Computed example of a mutant assay.
Amino acid sequence: MSYTGPGFDPPRPRRSRRGPLTVALAALVPGALLGWAVYAAVDGPGDGGGPAKASASVSASSGAPSPATASPSGDSGDRKPGASPTATAASPSASAPAASGPLGGKVVVIDPGHNPGNFEHTAEINRQVDIGTNRKACDTTGTATDDGYAEAEFTLDVAHRMRALLEEQGATVKLTQDADRPFGPCVDERARIGNEARADAVVSLHADGSGAGNRGFHVILPGTVDAGAADTRAIVGPSRDLGERIAGNFVRVTGSAPSNYVGGGTGLVTRKDLGGLNLSTVPKVFIECGNMRDSKDAALLTSGAWRQKAAQGISDGIVSFLRG
């Protein structure tokens, strides 16, 4: 997720040297995550530019079955910077036929952050929309790695991989957008898509645009908001459960550590300034899978093999949440 507005210029492509990757490993035992690789937390801005507050420690259940790990697109290698996201025929408003499985009857909405076309529609995405607590831009351009791999391409790729994994478990999966519209949707519409689908879980996919040296993932949980069109009181509890399970499984599958710059080493951050959360009436979280502006995190985010692990970890967390 970019800190910048729609006028943000994408970084000029340059080749970055990939340093050796050091990851923190955590092991899951039945019913609980035994340990976190805890990075030193440094106060810094959240995705909206304000300081983010740390929330409770992450936990995860090991009861979730692991779906197949093959890439749905057959792309198990690295994504080349600037390459197009995997094509798909699914419409964001139409469900794919659900297979029989443990998640039969469950609806999952995946919200790939931003849109590859947002850069060409700055006026439209700068339009202000009501998020309950105040008004914010319809959407933003998102960020990119120094080599030019866009956040919008990353989020679509992971969304496609997650859709295949969750449909194998029997879930009905919807995407809020699939690069099938010129820009957006706006943050209020993204929330509305999940609400109207009566989703059992919604996950908004992002990658951060913080400073170099800031590393790791974090899951953003909705804070308690009751203002204007926003009322999150009924979803705060289940959303936290969803977020904790996703964070724990993300560590287990990817080996990535929680953010070292927000969340106090827990991998969890609570926000009240995001329209996609404020306007949701169903359990919903955001996940920032890593920092695109750090070369070590960028090496992960641009790897097809790692993106498959990210999709697996997030999906396992959703499965664990839906199965209780």
Results as ranks from 00 to 15, higher is better:
S100L: 13
P102M: 13
L103D: 10
L103I: 12
L103M: 09
G104W: 12
K106V: 05
K106N: 00
V108Y: 04
V108N: 03
V108E: 01
V109A: 11
I110G: 08
G113K: 02
H114V: 12
N115P: 10
N115D: 07
P116A: 05
P116W: 01
G117Y: 15
N118A: 07
F119V: 10
F119K: 13
E120C: 06
H121K: 12
T122D: 04
A123W: 01
E124P: 13
I125L: 06
I125S: 07
N126P: 05
N126D: 03
N126G: 07
R127V: 13
V129S: 01
V129L: 14
D130F: 01
I131K: 01
I131Y: 00
I131N: 00
G132K: 15
N134M: 15
K136I: 01
K136F: 03
K136G: 14
D139W: 02
D139L: 08
D139N: 11
D139R: 08
D139F: 02
D139V: 09
T141M: 09
T141R: 11
T141L: 03
G142H: 10
T143A: 08
A144S: 12
A144Y: 00
T145S: 04
D147W: 03
D147S: 12
D147K: 13
A150T: 06
E151C: 14
E151R: 11
A152W: 07
E153W: 07
F154G: 14
T155R: 12
L156T: 15
L156S: 02
L156W: 06
D157T: 13
V158G: 05
A159Y: 02
H160A: 10
M162H: 10
M162Q: 03
R163H: 02
R163I: 03
A164Y: 00
A164M: 04
L166M: 08
E167H: 09
G170R: 06
A171V: 15
A171H: 02
T172A: 14
V173A: 10
K174R: 08
L175P: 10
Q177E: 05
D178F: 06
A179C: 10
D180L: 02
R181A: 09
F183V: 15
G184T: 09
P185F: 02
C186M: 01
V187I: 08
V187R: 10
V187F: 09
D188T: 15
D188N: 15
E189M: 13
A191C: 15
A191N: 06
I193F: 10
I193V: 07
N195P: 05
N195L: 08
E196R: 14
A197K: 12
R198E: 02
A199N: 08
A199K: 12
A201T: 04
A201F: 04
A201E: 11
A201I: 06
V202R: 05
V203Y: 00
S204M: 10
S204H: 08
S204P: 05
L205Y: 02
L205A: 01
